[in-house]
Design a protein around this nucleic acid. Structure first.
Length: 477
RNA sequence: CGAUGCGUGGCUCAGUUUGGUAGAGCGCUACGUUCGGGACGUAGAGGUCGCAGGUUCAAAUCCUGUCGCAUCGACCA
């Protein structure tokens, strides 16, 4: 909403998007910085969003047969070394434990940057027969990657995530699970976070260290930059061969398993901020709003006002996440506070309303104020929350459509990235040299080769050789 | 790892050029008046000036070193 800027403390996004982001994160009290660079305190308002994400995503996992497990946070160096591409990919950013107490360790331990190697080490003993397959495990945990540049939620040195790791008897089963989980992710973003995504495959250059194929969901932020929001990898039997994960199949021959892994992180909270937020602060989709409705009493010291507010809360909390702001701030303060924190709905109730048997509901997403009779509030709140959830997705989708362009020549391509921000669809010959050149010239990377391919031209946008794939290109976080 | 900026009450910062009793606003506490878009009055609490050396009668201020954080680049969820 809010063309009018109500909160001076938040830098406007047009002026400085990075600063706006930081201001929102701080003002909505999602995090605090700590004395360790890149490690943040996730405060109650932020962690509650993560809990709602966790719960709803976990339910969707379980529907597909996923079981949760927990593996250690330390990986012996020798274990990490086993898969060559994998260790090369992660070595530059792992943190090492070298001492136990005062004694140096015989073998240093890395703090998991991801747990493929641990799962492999576990699976090699756990899997003997085709009857043991598939294994469809997931863990919720934190991982550590020693990033040079850090930003709250988008890139921190320690972050929370889930990592699914599966093992299958056949390549087909592994591929099917890889795609299945990508679809779970895509639906989750659209239905719960109200963020539309492009589904597709990463190029060789951009794929995960050790994977045969990496699939991704890419979302477009308000500033036109892309955010990789979830990935699903098919490992083929590469890890199985490196770790010796074999099973006896029905035909009594020894075979290697085929594996997958897939993950989403607290980065999603960054995506919510950058897709839905506005110049008054955070705007939360109702399904992940820890408080869906904040009741603001007006003249709360007047007899009966607070009682009425509590009464409304007690009725509404059976169906919704509701709170009463009964602090002794002024109403104006509370309105601004509710906006910064992104509560989808605000309910105003004062002596005049009580007398008239009504109250005022205010939508965070578009600022609209609606008078509602008190006996219709419950139905109206439910209806409005659904409408808000739906319209937030529609707005985000419209924004993405408006910021998705097409180019068939390098001149068009460069011109688009020099004058606009967003996704550019263009054809590609599948030669990495073109990707490298585009990155060097424009700091633009291939985001994905979408499943929904179009034939925009027969020629690669960069070199003019015959094109093989349409690619989404963009500047990325 | 490169560039830039910043470390002074909870927060934002002034004070450093030119050394001389640690400041302001906000926030916090108490009481009172207020209340439909960040109200006001009165009284009060709160700081080893990031850390370590050095120069000096005297250091937030000058010198040396060091640590940390933020932002921007290269690398990555």
């Amino acid at each position: 909403m809010a063309e009018k800027k109500l909160v001076e403390a938040i830098t406007s996004m047009e002026e400085d998007f990075a600063q706006w982001y930081t201001d929102v994160v701080k003002k909505a009290e999602l995090i605090d910085y700590t004395s360790v660079k890149g490690c943040m305190v996730i405060k109650p308002a932020g962690y509650a969003i993560w809990e709602l994400i966790q719960k709803q995503l976990d339910d969707r996992f379980k529907e597909t047969g996923v079981e949760n497990v927990y593996l250690p946070m330390f990986i012996p160096e020798s274990l990490l070394q086993k898969e060559k591409d994998h260790v090369e990919g992660f070595a530059p950013e792992v943190a090492w434990v070298t001492h136990g107490g005062l004694q140096p360790l015989q073998e240093r331990l890395c703090v998991r940057p991801t747990s493929e190697t641990l799962f492999c080490d576990f699976y090699k003993n756990d899997i003997q027969s085709y009857r043991d397959l598939p294994k469809v495990y997931n863990q919720w945990c934190s991982v550590v990657r020693w990033e040079k540049e850090t930003r709250p939620f988008l890139r921190s040195r320690e972050f929370l995530w889930q990592e699914g790791h599966t093992a299958h008897a056949t390549a087909q089963d592994a591929e099917a699970r890889t795609i299945q989980m990508l679809n779970v992710y895509a639906k989750f973003l659209e239905e719960v976070l109200a963020i539309p995504v492009v589904k597709g495959q990463k190029t060789e250059k951009e794929k995960f260290a050790g994977a045969v194929a990496t699939y991704t969901i890419e979302a477009l932020m308000h500033d036109g930059k892309a955010l990789q929001s979830g990935t699903s990898h098919n490992f083929g039997s590469g890890f199985a061969e490196a770790f010796g994960i074999q099973f006896t199949d029905k035909d009594n021959t020894l075979k290697y398993v085929h594996q997958t892994s897939w993950g989403m992180t607290t980065r999603l909270i960054g995506a919510i901020i950058m897709v839905h937020g506005d110049n008054s602060g955070l705007v939360l989709p109702p399904k992940v709003a820890p408080t869906q409705l904040m009741i603001v009493p007006i003249m709360q010291k007047k007899e009966g006002v607070l009682d009425k507010a509590y009464e409304l809360r007690d009725t509404l909390k059976k169906s919704f996440r509701v709170k009463v702001d009964d602090t002794d701030k002024t109403p104006g303060w509370k309105f601004a506070e509710a906006e910064m924190r992104g509560y989808p709905l605000r309910l105003e109730i004062g002596p005049k309303d009580i007398e008239a048997g009504k109250c005022v509901l205010c939508r965070r997403d578009n600022g609209e104020k609606i008078e509602v009779a008190l006996d219709e509030v419950e139905a109206k709140v439910g209806e409005l929350l659904e409408t808000i959830q739906k319209e937030m997705l529609e707005r985000a989708r419209a924004h993405r459509e408006e910021h998705t362009y097409e180019a068939t020549t390098m001149e068009e391509f460069e011109n688009l990235f020099n004058t606009k921000s967003g996704f550019v669809k263009a054809m590609w010959c599948e030669d990495q040299a073109c990707e490298d050149l585009i990155k060097e010239k424009l700091s633009v990377t291939s985001r994905c080769m979408p499943f929904e391919q179009q034939n925009l031209s027969d020629k690669c946008v960069c070199c003019g050789k015959p094109a093989k794939k349409m690619v989404y290109w963009g500047k990325a976080y």
